[in-house]
């Protein structure tokens, strides 16, 4: 039942269809059903929105602190510092995302170069 346990051409489609598509879209479908019952301005909607925001914030923290793959090549303190610098620049320029992202990326790359400079 692993991804590589069958040579059939359709097996990757079934595997990705169940473990990828159904596993993610079922939450979106539950969300439609729940959202259909929520009234604008209600306490329940306020809670749902706050919960969605906290969930995404936790995902953001995870992507920075415990990344899978190539980002883990960069030093963790450098990653945190780069995000903080980018966010500060974003705030100081009237919430301009392009500036915040640019500064964060620049700090990450320059910092990484400096750390590896022998």
């Amino acid at each position: 039942m692993t991804y590589f346990s069958s040579d059939a051409w359709y097996w990757p489609i079934i595997y990705i269809g169940i473990a990828g598509w159904i596993a993610t879209d079922m939450w979106r479908w539950f969300g439609v059903i729940a959202g259909n019952r929520l009234k604008e301005g209600s306490l329940a909607l306020l809670w749902v929105r706050a919960t969605a925001t906290s969930l995404v914030a936790a995902v953001i923290a995870k992507l920075i602190l415990q990344p899978t793959g190539a980002l883990s090549e960069f030093n963790i303190y450098l990653r945190i510092f780069a995000v903080a610098a980018g966010f500060a620049a974003f705030q100081m320029t009237g919430k301009r995302i392009v500036v915040g992202c640019g500064v964060a990326l620049l700090v990450l790359l320059v910092g990484n170069w400096a750390l590896n400079f022998q």
């Binding site: 939450w27 979106r28 969300g31 969930l55």
Partner: peptide, 19 residues
């Protein structure tokens, strides 16, 4: 299970968007 656990945020996100 692993993918489903990683995608739960989509439910409140969708529920907040629909109204």
């Amino acid at each position: 299970l692993a993918v489903a656990l990683s995608a739960i945020r989509l439910m409140p996100m969708t529920a907040a968007l629909v109204p």
